[in-house]
């Protein structure tokens, strides 16, 4: 490539990088501008007047519980499935293909459909009612295909690289998974975690039908609880005068996502740095 066209490419990519940074700051500054004064108390007090006033402590609590259930179920399940797909289904291409197709279909399914499924299965059929448990499980189903795909990629790469060496030393596949592949896949797993957390925190549609939108401090996972994104939706759509708190909640949500991303990048660097 000529020097000149390389410079043009460089310039273009710089401009597009600037552009995306610009969009991001535009979004964040709009949210902050609309939210008026944002104080720390917003995080530590409960809401009042249907959310128009007060903070979002109970919303944060519900969000956290929903997220914990979602990840607690989806992460182990998706790691196990990814290991199965990447390591153990080698000799059975049919099983592999069936599962892969199912996963791709699930990944393309709109979240509102997961909401309907969660409603009929967890809320009604299993009798959980509108509850944090039903919401968390529905979200778990929703993020599962994404997590599996990400984990599978990293795990199968590591397996490919070390399976001959591992097997030639008489390590069973289970031993390889436990001692070599999973320890080497920590960065993939943390990337998956960030993605899962991001999706779960931003989800609205699937939660409306499952965990509901009761604005109250949850006493157990069988209580209905309102997540941050549902709170934003409800304040903006149904509560006259709720806009400002909707924007404040949005700021909290975006900042939470940024913090999670940065933390995981940092942790991943540490893990990678220690490895090489």
């Amino acid at each position: 490539m000529s020097f000149r066209s390389e410079n043009i490419l460089k310039g273009l990519s710089f401009i597009s990088a600037l552009f995306f940074c610009g969009i991001f700051f535009l979004i964040l500054s709009t949210l902050i501008y609309q939210s008026g004064a944002l104080s720390f108390e917003f995080l530590t007090t409960v809401s009042s007047e249907a959310g128009r006033a007060g903070g979002i402590l109970e919303v944060i609590n519900s969000s956290f519980l929903i997220l914990a259930i979602c990840l607690g179920v989806s992460v182990p399940l998706s790691i196990a499935t990814a290991v199965f797909l990447a390591v153990f289904s080698e000799k059975n291409p049919l099983v592999h293909n069936v599962i892969s197709t199912a996963l791709d279909t699930l990944a393309a399914t709109p979240s509102i459909v997961f909401g309907l499924f969660g409603y009929s299965f967890f809320v009604i059929y299993l009798g959980f009612g509108f509850s944090i448990l039903a919401g968390g499980l529905t979200l778990a189903f929703m993020v599962l295909p994404f997590l599996i795909r990400i984990f599978e990629e990293g795990i199968s790469e590591n397996y490919r690289q070390f399976k001959l060496a591992g097997a030639s030393l008489g390590l069973s596949r289970t031993a390889q998974v436990r001692r070599i592949i999973l320890p080497l896949s920590t960065n993939t797993i943390s990337a998956g975690l960030v993605l899962g957390i991001g999706r779960a925190l931003s989800e609205t549609a699937a939660l409306l039908f499952t965990s509901g939108y009761l604005l109250r401090m949850p006493e157990s996972v069988m209580d209905s609880g309102r997540s941050m994104s549902v709170h934003i939706f409800d304040l903006a759509m149904n509560v006259p005068g709720g806009n400002q708190n909707a924007y404040r909640t949005a700021v909290v949500l975006v900042i939470a996502l940024i913090v999670i991303n940065l933390t995981s990048t940092f942790l991943t660097r540490r893990v990678l740095g220690a490895k090489t």
Partner: peptide, 21 residues
């Protein structure tokens, strides 16, 4: 028993294959 077989019959590859630990 493949595990025992592969212990009794060791192998060294063309490219060194240490685990990245």
């Amino acid at each position: 028993d493949l595990i025992e077989l592969r212990r009794k019959i060791g192998m060294v590859f063309q490219r060194p294959a240490p685990f990245p630990f």
